[in-house]
């Protein structure tokens, strides 16, 4: 593996049965899993090209069930970007995802972090209980991106993951810019991202 390779750890979180695995498998293997087998913790790897640059994604599909909550802290610590998934037809899952949001920021000890809020099951429009406006308002208040998706119809699936990759890149670029460099303005980081001390 070359040292140049870009590699990100993405974590898919959210309540039970909102479609985390369906989204992940649709993204990785391009098909919709209809079986309802609760995940404990699965991980995937995929190489994709975002904005012309190749990236290896390690994607962690997590348990929605509360029983496995003990594992949360650990994956939250290692994750570099999070997909917070709820189901548009499930109010409980929407509240839960807000708790996940708080927890990520607490574990990371930051005010903001690369996160995309995903309202899944957009195909079940008749059963929708969370309006786009409400979700969008929550996202905007917290400075995160919001998307609606359907794992079943493969709608906004790749887009959600790729959007997260772009956000992580921007975030990490900001991070690698040394605070001391403030007075020289934003560095055009075309060269080496290393910080020479």
């Amino acid at each position: 593996m070359s040292a140049e390779e870009e590699r990100f750890k993405l974590v898919v979180v959210g309540g039970g049965g909102v479609g985390k695995s369906a989204l992940t498998i649709q993204f990785i293997q391009s098909y919709f899993v209809s079986d309802y087998d609760p995940t404990i913790e699965d991980s995937y790897t995929k190489i994709c090209t975002v904005d012309g640059k190749e990236t290896r994604l390690d994607i962690l599909d997590t348990a929605g069930q509360e029983e496995f909550g003990a594992m949360r802290e650990q994956y939250m610590r290692s994750g570099e970007g999070f997909l917070l998934v709820f189901a548009l037809n499930d109010r409980g899952s929407y509240h839960e995802v807000q708790k996940f949001h708080t927890q990520v920021l607490r574990v990371k000890d930051r005010d903001d972090f690369p996160i995309v809020l995903v309202g899944n099951k957009a195909d079940l429009e008749q059963q929708r209980v969370i309006s786009r406006e409400d979700a969008q308002a929550f996202a905007s208040d917290n400075g995160i991106h919001y998307m609606e998706s359907s794992a079943k119809n493969r709608y906004n699936v790749d887009e959600s993951f790729l959007e997260l990759v772009k956000i992580i890149r921007r975030f990490q670029e900001m991070e690698s810019t040394p605070p001391a460099a403030h007075h020289t303005g934003k560095q055009k980081s075309g060269g080496c991202p290393c910080v020479l001390l």
């Binding site: 990785i28 293997q29 995940t39 404990i40 913790e41 699965d42 991980s43 995937y44 790897t45 995929k46 390690d58 029983e67 496995f68 003990a70 594992m71």
Partner: peptide
């Protein structure tokens, strides 16, 4: 942690699904 949770982590390095926790 895993033993108390009652699952094992199965790995498959050559797959796109590289690991799976199995109850």
């Amino acid at each position: 942690e895993e033993s108390s949770q009652g699952f094992i982590r199965v790995q498959a390095p050559q797959f796109s699904k590289v690991s799976m926790a199995v109850h």
